Amino acid sequence: MNQILGIRQMTNTFDYDDIRGSVEKHLGKDNLGWVRIVTECFEAIKKHCDRREESYPSVDHIKQKFGSLRIYLDRAQEDTFIQLRLQQAMQEAEMSCERCGNASTAQVIAAWHVNLCCWHAHEAATERMETFPTVRLNTRAKNDALQCRSCGYIGQIAWDASGHRCPACVAKGW
């Protein structure tokens, strides 16, 4: 990274010959769900650029922010295919666990915004919160029909005899 007049400027650290490795550098190796989504996105972009004999877009950042996937290119991309493919990847990530790719939605764990399935949300909450599940997830959320009554997870809920709980709480007997 270079510092010019106090403005943070990143050099392009994205290698189109090692797309998955580059994505893992940006997102981390633990976030396999989103690594798969972004890798597939950039493989499609690479094929598109190769067919058109154009240069690949320069990637500035790929990151998680407030439970959403963000992909920033160095400059505005005018190619409609690339814009749509990036948008599709970010939309798919909105409904996918960062770590495993299971269906999920954004969660708040001790003021930390993440997009995790119930299994990984429980794991992350246990790591971050000494009082979990006494202090629940998503504490500021209004009572949602899709909110676990045991831990506060918002998303997949077992409705039958389990008593309106997420699958992780059902499995733990909470």
Rank of each mutant, 00 (worst) to 15 (best):
I7G: 00
E98F: 08
E92P: 00
N31P: 03
C100R: 03
D60R: 10
N2G: 05
E53R: 14
Q88T: 13
G28T: 04
A76K: 15
V59A: 02
V108C: 10
N115H: 03
A111Y: 11
I7M: 09
W112I: 09
Q87C: 13
L5C: 04
A103F: 07
R20A: 12
V114A: 09
V38D: 06
F66I: 11
C118W: 02
Q91H: 08
Y72N: 08
C41Y: 03
H61G: 00
I19F: 04
L73E: 07
V108I: 12
A106M: 12
M90A: 05
Y56F: 15
R51P: 00
Y72F: 12
Q77P: 00
D60E: 11
L73N: 07
I45Y: 01
A111R: 08
E123D: 14
E98M: 15
D60V: 00
E94W: 02
N31F: 09
L73V: 07
C117H: 02
T126Q: 14
A44V: 01
T80L: 14
T39C: 03
Q3N: 12
H61W: 02
V38S: 07
C117F: 03
C49N: 11
V59C: 03
K29E: 15
P57I: 05
K29W: 03
D15P: 02
I62S: 05
L32A: 15
H48R: 04
C41S: 10
R99D: 01
M1D: 09
K29R: 10
I19M: 03
L69V: 08
F14S: 01
M1G: 15
R70W: 08
I45M: 05
T11Y: 10
I109C: 00
K47A: 11
Y16P: 02
I19D: 06
Q88R: 13
E53T: 04
A106I: 12
F81M: 07
A89F: 06
R20Y: 01
S55T: 11
N102G: 00
R36G: 03
A103W: 04
Q91G: 02
I7A: 06
Y56G: 02
V108Q: 05
Y72H: 10
L32Q: 15
I45W: 01
Q107F: 07
T13L: 11
A76L: 14
C100I: 04
Q83S: 06
W34F: 09
V38I: 13
S104A: 15
N31T: 07
A44Y: 02
E92M: 09
M90N: 00
C41G: 04
I37Q: 08
M1E: 10
V38N: 06
R99H: 07
K25G: 11
S96W: 03
A93I: 06
H61Q: 09
S22V: 06
R70I: 13
C41D: 02
G6E: 08
F66Q: 09
I7V: 12
D17V: 00
E98S: 14
G67A: 12
E24H: 06
V108H: 02
S55Y: 05
F66W: 09
I4H: 05
A111I: 00
R85D: 07
D50R: 09
Q64E: 15
M95E: 09
K25E: 11
A125N: 05
I4S: 07
Y16E: 02
I82S: 01
D50F: 05
